Amino acid sequence: MNFGIGDQRDRHRWRIRAVRGGRWVRERSRKGLSSLPHLFTLANLAFGVGSLILTMQGEWRLASLMVVGSLVADGLDGRLARWLKADGEFGRELDSLADVVAFGVAPAVLLHQMALYQLGYFGLAVTIVFPLCGALRLARFNVIATSGYFVGVPITAAGTLLSTMAFYFLQETTAAPAPHVIPSAMLLLSYLMISSIPYPDFKKRSKGAGLQFWPVVGPVVALGALLWAAGWNPWAVILMPLTAYVVLGPWLVVVKKWDEKVQPWLAGANRR
């Protein structure tokens, strides 16, 4: 009888150890999965460094595609972090460090090697301004809490737009762009990154905060017209949606000002 009681106690003791062991395995597995978004963030950074190396080697097409790879990795790390509920301060800081290289430094250096070097010190200044504004944009993003929108155009959209523009000029055009096109685009995007213009965040918009239909009609129609003018070129199909998103922020500001100021004035004029 005593042997049976001792045997039951031993079994109970081993059962407790097994439960604790299973809990330890589950906790370790959860910690391992929480590190998965960081791996995609590091892949984002690796793509950016690869783009810089390919730019120095003169492989400009591949360098621009590497930035597109950074965009894919950046999108996956955010989605995984939200799905695994592993988003935190460490991931946010690491993501910013990767973004400033992949979408700030890499596109700027690529376009400098392609065209801006011909402008001397002015081209060098434009090359430096773009990643500086991108770093300011990322620093502000980390300290300002917003929901459903961004303050200023995201550096991911700005950097990918520049890289896609570079690839389009390299792949589908025989003549180099006008000297003012690239620096103008870079300076405009630099300003939009540090501006206070709100841009919609389609990933985090709540169900009741959807965009109204009619303010988006303008950019959509303009996008369709540009694609038609480009002959539905496949590389233009990639370039134009990014352009439309960059234009969407200022366009929505104009629409809001129209609703707040111009429409009431027109209503008062009609009553007179």
Rank of each mutant, 00 (worst) to 15 (best):
A18K: 13
R11T: 02
Q57P: 03
F213S: 12
M56T: 14
A139V: 02
N2E: 14
A98L: 06
V181M: 10
L162W: 08
Q118M: 11
F141N: 01
G210R: 15
R23G: 03
A236R: 09
Q118V: 12
Q118W: 13
A73L: 05
L170C: 04
L227S: 05
Y121R: 15
R82E: 03
L170T: 03
L119K: 10
F122G: 08
L110C: 07
H112R: 08
W235H: 12
T160Y: 03
M66W: 11
H12K: 10
A158F: 00
V101G: 01
A178M: 07
S163D: 02
R23M: 08
A178V: 06
I155W: 01
M66E: 14
L76I: 13
A108G: 09
A158R: 02
E93G: 08
A157V: 15
R13L: 09
W265P: 00
S64E: 05
E89A: 07
E89F: 12
A157W: 00
L52R: 04
R28I: 00
V129D: 03
T127M: 13
G32C: 02
M193I: 07
E260M: 10
M165W: 11
V253A: 03
A63R: 01
L94E: 08
F130Y: 12
V221S: 15
K204Y: 07
H12A: 03
R92M: 09
S196Q: 09
K261I: 03
M66F: 09
E260V: 05
G268Y: 07
P183W: 02
Q8L: 06
A63W: 06
S184G: 14
V237Q: 14
A157L: 05
V216L: 13
A115M: 12
S206C: 08
D7A: 08
T243A: 14
I53H: 09
A244G: 13
F3T: 11
A229T: 15
M186W: 07
S184I: 14
P37Q: 01
Y121I: 12
L138G: 06
N233H: 14
L119C: 04
A125M: 12
L111T: 02
D77K: 10
Q113E: 14
L252Q: 02
S206G: 15
A175T: 11
A145C: 02
V247I: 12
L94A: 13
A98W: 04
G218R: 06
W228Q: 15
S147Y: 08
T164S: 07
L119N: 06
A244V: 09
Y245L: 06
L162S: 08
Y149M: 00
V221Y: 07
V126E: 05
Y199M: 05
G48T: 00
L227I: 14
K256Y: 11
L45Y: 10
I5G: 04
F103N: 02
P264N: 13
G21T: 08
Q113R: 14
A244C: 14
L124A: 13
S195E: 13
M240D: 03
I182R: 11
A63P: 12
F40T: 09
A43Y: 04
E93R: 15
L192V: 07
P219N: 05
V246Y: 01
L111A: 05
L227F: 06
H112A: 10
R137F: 00
R137W: 01
R23C: 04
L119P: 00
Y199Q: 01
L188T: 15
F213N: 11
R17S: 04
A135F: 06
A108C: 08
P241I: 04
D87V: 13
L65C: 10
A209K: 15
G4A: 08
